[in-house]
Design a protein around this nucleic acid. Sequence first.
DNA 1: GACATCCTATTACATTTGTAGTAGAGTGAG
DNA 2: CTCACTCTACTACAAATGTAATAGGATGTC
Lengths: 147, 147
Amino acid sequence: MRREESIKLTRFELEVMQALWEMGVGSVREIQERLPEKRRPAYTTVQTIVRRLEEKGAVRKLKKIGNAFIFEPTVTRKSAHRRLINELLELFGGSARPLMAHLAEIGKLSLEDVRELENILAQQSTADSRKAGSKQKDLSAPRARRQ
Amino acid sequence: MRREESIKLTRFELEVMQALWEMGVGSVREIQERLPEKRRPAYTTVQTIVRRLEEKGAVRKLKKIGNAFIFEPTVTRKSAHRRLINELLELFGGSARPLMAHLAEIGKLSLEDVRELENILAQQSTADSRKAGSKQKDLSAPRARRQ
DNA sequence: GACATCCTATTACATTTGTAGTAGAGTGAG
DNA sequence: CTCACTCTACTACAAATGTAATAGGATGTC
């Protein structure tokens, strides 16, 4: 069994996974309909991507409803994101600092962002020092976007 | 003239650019020799990548020494990195917060990192607040910085 | 049970990317 | 000048990726 960390996803594959992660599970049709209407790919295009995702081990057939397969993700959004981040980090020398500095420099990171993050981290570190096993979750939960 | 922000670089192209950015300018030979010895690509492979980079407008011929061209980057490391970061940010909903949270969650970000960053940001914001009252934009404006 | 639908499986093809070979022009050492 | 080298320009080709068409099986609807 391949380690899921080793699965690399292309841009389009990631979009499809994104839809699946949001839905939990879904058919090819449902995935297609969830993709942005602007320049929505053909049904069979989505089908091809889902097939490739299955070959890569990123999704699997969960069951069949009627004559349609229902797919579910077998890699978590988090692990996929982790991979992407790690790749990006490599370009920045492996450490998060230059990346953060860059984020700040190009205006993507506000002082408020950082202060909140600092609080979270501070709490984590005290919590972790007492009980190292507990995974603090949901920091990456989607939140209202502004563009 | 294409806007440099629109230039997308592949993994290998980025490695080559990395070498060029470090050197400032250089020939194909020099670039090749600067690539990591582990699995160093053939000379003509590097040559091909450099040619593609030239077609994309990421480098240009600066001059000729002997019969060899000397290339120089025409996109800055910063702008290339900005593009990569923006692409990654899109996956995280466009905001840096979830990305930061994720970084913290997977242990890539320490409390010290964040505290230092906070200092930097605090200084920037006081400097900027004199000009633009609202959001701290413009951090990406050309601000005499060494490359 | 015949038809219009919807799905799957298979095949196809252009582009991009990684990786390099070859031919021939330019250049420095004798 | 001639030879060995070094470069460039051009060509090649497989794998990955984006994008879809086609053929044919399964299903719901009269």
